[in-house]
Computed example of a mutant assay.
Amino acid sequence: MKKLITILALATLLTACGNSETNTTTNSQTSEASKATETVSTEAKATKYTTYSGEGFSFAYPESWKSVDTSQMNAPSIKAAFSDQSSSVTFADNMNLTIEASSTGSINPEEYANNIVDYYTQSGSSIGISDYKKTSYTNKPYKEYSAGVLEGAYKHSSGTDVILVQYLIPTNTELYTMTLTYAKDTYNQDEIKDILDSLSITAPLEQTAPTATTGNSSVTASAADFFNELTPYITEDTAFMEQASYDFFGKHNDVFPAITAELSKKVQGLVDSNVTTRHLNKNVANYYNTFVQVNGEVISVEEDSSLGATFSIVHVMDENGNDIIALYPATTGDLLDGDYATVIGAPITNFSFENVGGGYTNATLIGASLVVAD
């Protein structure tokens, strides 16, 4: 199974070394740096832009910047990226646009901003971001939609002081994020404003509170949308959620996740104990409307906060050697590889992923309501 890449780490991945042709004397470098410092304001005001048009969006970027090849990052949420590859310093100013599934269905951009701040503060060092500090959050509506700009500063692993600006536009199902990363010495507020203001989204947007209907009608709920959006990503586009499964998650939206004692008790009472992984392997479609329970060893557990809230991917192997991949819209706490856990949730699909031995492992993807250590 392809590992998720934390989109928040993109600012680190996109940094680039300076031109290899700039190995001049120290005096020459100092002189050129001084000249650049003296003229940076004038040059910034004269910035010329080029427009990039993608599927459902467009924006302007400095015409001297070059496109960054992100194909090797295994991150389809990255829709476009550019950086100043002409720089001779160890950090290249850069920008990118990501469109990713919303894990919560929230349309509050400040909620996403706060979660991002928490992630950088607690885990930033693992992706080359040290001493991150939030400097500001400003409401910046996109047309009639709620949106905001988060700005912070950190020390990059190269030793560079960096300014990080992120324009967050959440919808019921997706989060649009434009990220601009500048070295402190080259940070230019006017240029950043120009780029942010240039963003145009032509794809349909919806910012309304999630609702659910009963009976046989279609259901729209954040849990259903979350699992629906991430299913093809987890399965590397080999499987998709069926309507019956989508509707079932929508009807039980309140227990995804079951984070209170009351909800935990509720979902445990909904489990059909007669359904095992062997039943799921035979024909998962028979159990789209069923809560199942799986107990086993945790082969791997990953957490990701790039969607505005933490979610987890837990690989569990049961006593029969059958594999379950649990997609869980919450943190798993202290759960680690090698522990034993109980997973309760509803099956989404069967799929296969490449294993370390070079073969393929068959597994069932479950939308998890509850993941607890045994």
Rank of each mutant, 00 (worst) to 15 (best):
K3N: 11
I5T: 08
I7L: 12
L10T: 15
T15I: 09
E21M: 07
T22H: 09
N23T: 06
T24F: 07
T26E: 02
N27Y: 08
K35N: 06
T39L: 14
T42H: 13
K48Y: 10
Y52K: 12
G54P: 00
E55H: 10
S58H: 00
A60R: 11
S67T: 13
S83Y: 13
A92S: 15
I99H: 06
N108P: 02
E110H: 00
A113V: 03
N115M: 13
S123H: 14
S130T: 04
Y132P: 04
Y142N: 10
E151D: 04
G152H: 01
G152A: 10
A153L: 06
A153S: 11
A153H: 00
D161H: 01
I163N: 14
L164Y: 06
T171E: 06
E174V: 00
E174C: 01
T177N: 15
T179G: 04
I192E: 05
K193S: 14
D194S: 12
D197H: 11
L199S: 09
S200C: 01
Q207N: 05
T208W: 00
T211V: 13
T211A: 14
G215M: 02
S217K: 04
V219L: 11
T220H: 09
A221M: 09
A223C: 08
T238N: 07
Q243R: 09
A244N: 14
A244Q: 15
A244S: 14
S245C: 10
Y246N: 06
K251D: 11
K251Q: 15
N253V: 05
A258M: 04
A261Y: 00
V271F: 00
T277M: 10
L280H: 06
N283K: 08
V284T: 13
Y287R: 12
T290I: 01
G296V: 08
E297V: 05
V298S: 03
A309Y: 05
V316A: 11
D323A: 03
I325L: 11
L335K: 02
P347S: 14
T349V: 14
F351M: 06
N355T: 08
G359F: 05
T361E: 08
N362F: 02
T364E: 06
V372C: 07
